[in-house]
Amino acid sequence: MVRFVGKQCLLSIPTILLLTFFVFAIVYLIPGDPAEALLGNTASPEAIAAYRQKMRLDEPLLVQYGVWLGRVVHGDLGVSVRTSEPVIDAIVARLPVTLQLSAVALAFALVGGVPLGVLAATRRNSAWDGVAQLVGLAGLAMPGFFLALLLILVVSLKYGLLPVSGYVSFTENPVESFKSLLLPAVTLGFAVLGAITRMTRTAMLEVLGDNFITAARAKGLRERTVLVRHALKNALIPVVTLTGLQLGSLLGGTIIIEKIFGLPGIGRLMIDNVYAHDFPVIQGVLLFLALIRLATNLATDVLYALLDPQVRFQ
């Protein structure tokens, strides 16, 4: 197991290097001087010259990248042009909101999606199956920002059930915190809910057709036991994988959701600074989210290997 994890980690080193290069190179897409883009155009010519020298911007691209990477490795993602706040601090400060939001969204997707998928698979062509297929399709096609507006319109503006904006931290007031996150989390988790429902249904159908289920049934085990102990346990393996892989799109979704619901998380940090052309922050968030995604993918692989012993021997 340790060797497996170690190997996966080693394999991701070149990926991380390339990924950081992407992030580094993005400022070269900006028309004009990258030093000015990174310092803001209120920076003095002297400051820009000093920065050029410090980051060795007059040398070949790879040298520049090396210098930049060296700083990033030491946790120095630069300083926000707009607020002079170190980028790493800004990210860390906003992380709890995004993590909570994502956690509630994921919980919503799992709690809703797995049972719905199981129901659909065990009662094919029933009303449940219809609902599951509908949810699966809607999850694919429903834009989060449209769903958000519909929910705000109905739940908050018409009936005033839940707040439309703002964030209450969990430590401050758990109930209010949950209420403030419910609408955004449902919106954010909806696409994942659809994907999980579809995947659970498909996987359950596949497993239910397998010989060992027939054998279990033949042994005279109760249907419930067969379903939960044997079928679901096996069907969940691909669902776990899918859930892990969906984390990335979940993080991407936070940009719009946090903007619409006025939540001070990573996504909001990203979009606010896109508007402000604050490239150190944009780079920082890009890098951070990509690394998180890579880490969750890696964790998913490991989890998958744990759940399905065959993988390890490959």
């Binding site: 390339l18 290069f21 990335g248 940009i255």
Partner: peptide, 20 residues
């Protein structure tokens, strides 16, 4: 792999931030 590590929306947003 590196390319796919970026959530689609985040990378697209980063690109438009730079490109305009």
């Amino acid at each position: 792999d590196a390319w796919l590590a970026f959530p689609v929306m985040v990378l697209a947003l980063g690109m438009t931030a730079a490109l305009g």
